[in-house]
Each structure stands twice: as C-alpha cells, then as structure tokens.
C-alpha cells in the first residue's frame, strides 16, 4: 500500500474522514448561528446547549417512548426548535432593541441553566445511544474503512446545509429573510410580518442545532457538556466565515474540520489550536471574515 509523506493511507484518510465529521457539525451549528445572527443580531451562546438538547431529546424518545432514530431525527429538531420559539417570544424579543452584548449574556445564562438542569437529572458521565441498525458496519474502500454512519452524517449535513442555503438565497421566503435582515423597518412597512419572521428564524436556527445533536448522539456519548465543548470552536468557525454569512458558515465549517483532521495527522500537537490560529490570522487580515461583508 502507498504512503503519503510517510503516512499510511488508513491513518491519513481516517483523519480526513474524522475531520469531515467534525466539519459537518461545525457547518450545521455555525449555519444556525449565522442565520440567527443575520436576522436577530443575537450571538446565540445557548446554541451548544440546544445542540445537546437535540441529542438528549433523541435519547429520551428512544428510552422513554421507544421512538427510533429516524423519527427522532425529525421530531427532536421540531421540539428543540419549539423551545427556541418560546425563548425568543418570552426573552429575546424583550431585548431586541438593546446592544448585542445583552443577547450574548442572556443566551450564555440560558446555556448554563439548560446544562445545569440536564446535569442534575442525568449526571455528566454520558449516556449511550446506539447507531441505528440500518447504518451499522461499513465498507472497506481499500485505502480506508468507511463506517456507514459516519458517511451518513457527512451526507445528511451537506444536504441540510445546501437546502438551508437554497431556502435563504433562492426562495421568496429567503428574500423576505434577507430583506428583513438588511432593513427590518422598511420590510415591515411593505406589510411583511417581521416579528413573526424573527421568531421563526430563531426557531429554525435552534432546530438546526437540535438536528446536529441527533446526528451526534450515536457518535459521541450523550452528555450535558457535549455542546459546551463544541461551541467555542463553532464560534471561531463563524468568525472565520464571517458573522451572518450563510455560505461562509457552510464552506468554513467543512474546510476547518478538514484542516483540523489533517493537522492531527501531520502535527497532532497543533490540532486543538489550529482553528484558533486561523481565526486570529483572519481577524488580522480580514476582520469581517472570509465571506463577510465589511460594515
């Protein structure tokens, strides 16, 4: 078997796949953050907790109600998204007119409360969630072994990300969203219900986090801290892509996952920090992010 720069292909492509898996979660989560920031101007710090809720809802569906993975994949985002709608209506709406910082602080507090509630109820050691029977096992591609579930995660993420991009960039509803993002006052003066759009957009962004949580449940153990561990990296992804940029969130999410995976192969010591180093460089050279528009 050939080697690339002295690295066996199984190790190299294994890490590339791992990078793509991480990139998939970065992309969906940063996409949700970008959608929310774009319209609400809120840096949704509870996004990681809402991702964790998605995983827990899937776990509860299976263990309490006997609802399988596939049904949970639809149900959990709806449930988590509905909690987002409630949060927006009850809390975020009240601070819509003040500085972004208040939104960040409020959602940070919410994240701590949500994590605390789940930690109290389920502990922090993690709960197992089985890979669905249809996606167990994998295929040997010769240069690497591809587990079906991991392949599914990458494909599902790509489909969700591209569908979201299409919805926002190519449909009438997306035009409403972009218009309301750019000039909410005028958009409302055309007879468009901007407050409803805001609520639904927050719910949709949160549902994306819930969807990522369900995808993650069989890969990582379901535990209250799973979102907190991820959210800082996801924020770095959003900053690199450009705050509020839909395409930036998707492209940067997958790319940084890959870069992180390759760094694990060639310089493992740097893999935990490479994304943050890239963030610093991007901020120095292009503060609005790679795909962001300068203010």
């Amino acid at each position: 078997m050939f080697e690339l720069l002295g690295i066996p292909p199984q190790a190299l492509f294994g890490q590339v796949l791992l990078g793509l898996i991480n990139g998939s979660f970065y992309a969906i989560l940063s996409l949700g953050l970008a959608v929310i920031f774009g319209l609400l101007n809120i840096i949704n710090f509870s996004h990681g907790a809402q991702y964790m809720m998605g995983a827990f809802v899937a776990w509860m569906c299976l263990n309490y109600l006997g609802i399988n993975y596939w049904a949970a994949l639809l149900l959990a985002p709806l449930i988590v998204g509905a909690t987002g709608v409630v949060i927006e209506r009850l809390l975020l709406k009240r601070i819509a007119h003040v500085d972004h910082l208040y939104g960040l602080l409020l959602t940070f507090g919410l994240a701590l409360i949500i994590q605390g509630l789940f930690r109290n109820s389920y502990g922090s050691s993690g709960l197992p969630y089985q890979i669905p029977a249809e996606l167990r096992g994998g295929i040997n591609l010769g240069f690497m072994f591809l587990p079906w579930y991991r392949g599914w995660v990458v494909v599902a993420s790509l489909v969700v990300c591209l569908s979201t991009w299409f919805l926002i960039e190519k449909t009438k509803l997306g035009a409403y969203l972009r218009a309301a993002t750019e000039n909410p006052t005028l958009t409302q003066a055309f007879g468009i219900n901007v407050p409803l759009l805001v609520t639904l957009t927050y719910g949709f962004g949160v549902a994306l986090a819930g969807f990522a949580g369900v995808l993650a449940a069989p890969i990582y153990s379901v535990n209250p801290n799973m979102g907190a561990d991820l959210i800082i990296v996801v924020f770095a992804v959003v900053v690199i892509g450009g705050m509020g940029s839909i395409l930036g969130a998707i492209v940067t999410g997958f790319s940084l996952g890959l870069i992180e995976g390759l760094t694990k192969v060639f310089y493992p010591e740097g893999s935990a920090t490479v994304i943050f180093i890239i963030m610093v460089l991007v901020l120095l050279v292009r503060p609005a992010g790679l795909f962001g528009r300068a203010a």
Binding site: A175, R178, A179, E182, Q188, A189, G191, I192, V194
Partner: peptide
C-alpha cells in the same frame, strides 16, 4: 404597526429609496 398600515393599501417609497443590496 406599519405592516398592518401597509395592508390597508398604502405604498411607501422612502427618501433613500430602500433598495435592498442583498436582493
């Protein structure tokens, strides 16, 4: 609210024209 006023049949062209750059 302005969205309800618009629905009564008023069309508004603001001074700065209000053309959306993202559309």
């Amino acid at each position: 609210p302005s969205r309800a006023i618009a629905r009564l049949g008023i069309g508004y062209v603001p001074e700065e024209r209000g053309i959306y750059a993202s559309l």
